[in-house]
């Protein structure tokens, strides 16, 4: 038995009559508005999570600052050393922008196969990262395995941090601050994203393995970053598996065997969609699939 989610007596259709939405057209304007509203305000990006608040029986916030139309936050810049991704870039746009960069296969797949086509065209990468309640976000493990950094800005200035750190502080991010950029280093690497929805597509994956390795000319792993999503409440790297693969010839079966030995470090989350044990059980096969896809790339 899995405990149900709390239900109000009131049916879910109602929306909060008092919410305001300020449509910002520049970052400065958005920061000003957020600063003005303080804790009563929040950022509204694609809206695919916030607009479902009534379904979750969560009240809407009093004020939203819509940032989706801020041009400077909506670009993907592909440089020689890094790729800079604006936070309001949609999943669909991100997948399209990265389509010809094999080193970003993991992220293109994460962005290009999540949810469904219309949602991918609405939901933003920044929203995906900044929603603590969404354990099954595809882009979080994908960006973890790419060693992404997150730039956060407020009126008082900007700071950059590792995505791992951002995930720790995101639910307590001070009012008036928002993600302004995602920076992903470029390098020679083989990457792949293995996600497991319960149907063929269209639902949230119950487990995700995002995989990135660099191999030398002899096929030995020189560097590895592997992240696991949806299994635990927050995605994280699988450092023991990474360490175990370093220096070894990369083969998918071997990686899966090692994953089997190490999988017990995960404490899965029980959900209505899948039990905890299942999420952990499927990890080795996702590692195999990811490794095979990466090798084939």
């Amino acid at each position: 038995m899995i405990p149900g989610s709390p239900m109000q007596r009131v049916p879910a259709a109602a929306h909060n009559a008092a919410s305001s939405i300020h449509v910002a057209h520049s970052l400065a304007n958005a920061l000003d508005a957020l600063s003005e509203w303080g804790s009563a305000g929040a950022v509204f990006a694609g809206g695919t999570w916030i607009m479902r608040s009534p379904i979750r029986h969560e009240p809407l916030r009093e004020h939203y600052v819509a940032i989706g139309r801020i041009a400077e936050l909506g670009a993907v810049r592909i440089g020689t050393d890094v790729v800079e991704i604006g936070p309001v870039v949609t999943h669909a746009a991100l997948a399209a922008a990265l389509a010809d960069l094999p080193e970003f296969n993991v992220l293109a797949a994460a962005a290009g196969r999540s949810a469904n086509p219309a949602i991918r065209a609405m939901a933003t990468i920044g929203g995906n990262l900044a929603t603590p309640g969404f354990a099954a976000a595809d882009c979080v493990p994908a960006l973890l395995c790419l060693d992404a950094e997150i730039e956060v800005a407020g009126r008082e200035g900007r700071e950059r941090m590792k995505l791992e750190h951002f995930l720790q502080i995101r639910s307590t991010l001070a009012p008036g601050r928002l993600v302004t950029q995602i920076v992903v280093p470029r390098s020679e690497r083989k990457t792949a994203h293995a996600r497991l929805p319960l149907r063929k597509a269209g639902d949230y994956p119950v487990a995700i393995v995002s995989f990135s390795v660099s191999v030398d000319a002899a096929g030995r792993v020189q560097a590895a970053r592997i992240a696991v999503g949806s299994v635990e409440p927050v995605a994280r790297r699988w450092e023991r598996l990474e360490a175990a693969l370093i220096g070894r010839q990369l083969d998918a079966e071997g990686a899966a065997r090692t994953a089997t030995e190490l999988a017990e470090e995960f404490v899965g989350r029980d959900g209505v969609d899948a039990p905890a044990w299942y999420r952990v059980s499927v990890l080795p096969s996702l590692v195999r699939r990811a490794a095979a896809a990466a090798l084939g790339a």
Partner: peptide
């Protein structure tokens, strides 16, 4: 599934999966 509180756990399209 029915939770220990007697409530059906699948409250919408996210958790109740019809064929696509």
């Amino acid at each position: 599934t029915i939770g220990s509180n007697g409530r059906v756990c699948q409250s919408g399209f996210e958790t109740y999966r019809v064929p696509l």
